[in-house]
Amino acid sequence: MRLKVLLPLLVFALIAGALYAGLSLRPRDIPSALIGKPVPAFELPPVQGRNAGLSTADLTKGEPSLVNVFASWCAPCRIEHPVWVELAKTKEVPIHGLNWKDQPQAASRWLETFGDPYTRTGADISGRVAIDWGVYGAPETFVVAGDGTIMCKYISVVTREMLDEKILPMLRDLKRTGKTSRSC
């Protein structure tokens, strides 16, 4: 009897708890389906004016790397771009650029204006390769292990702190042992 009249209150407490938790969740960020899977098979020509294109083979040579999805039309990409330029100077890890649905000249000009941190670039003009990677916005950044396994995907802008606290420690693990126990 007592329980019966308490039931609505209990259900509400449950819902309120979930709502509170929900305030700090990000429902729009969809986690990648490719974590723990090998990088998709692809081969792309470089961005106009560059000579190193990007393909599956480049990501499975034993060295861990970062794959950054960028485009000249993507305003937020400009925000995170200095982070990559700075990281490139340290030569700690190869950063590859996946240029998504861009005009060849625009992409080339963009890299000249803001700096080119990329070891290799792949110009995905039609966007088909990006779909194979499960890309749905830019910027997105993948952490790829030396054997070509996708470890992490970061949606939206990567900041300096994220790089120092999450991404670089993981890459160092991967470099040393080929494995990592860190989470994204």
Binding site: R26, A75, P76, G137, S156, V157
Partner: peptide, 8 residues
């Protein structure tokens, strides 16, 4: 934060 991901 919503703006920080762009679509083509």
């Amino acid at each position: 934060a919503l703006l920080l991901l762009a679509a083509p």
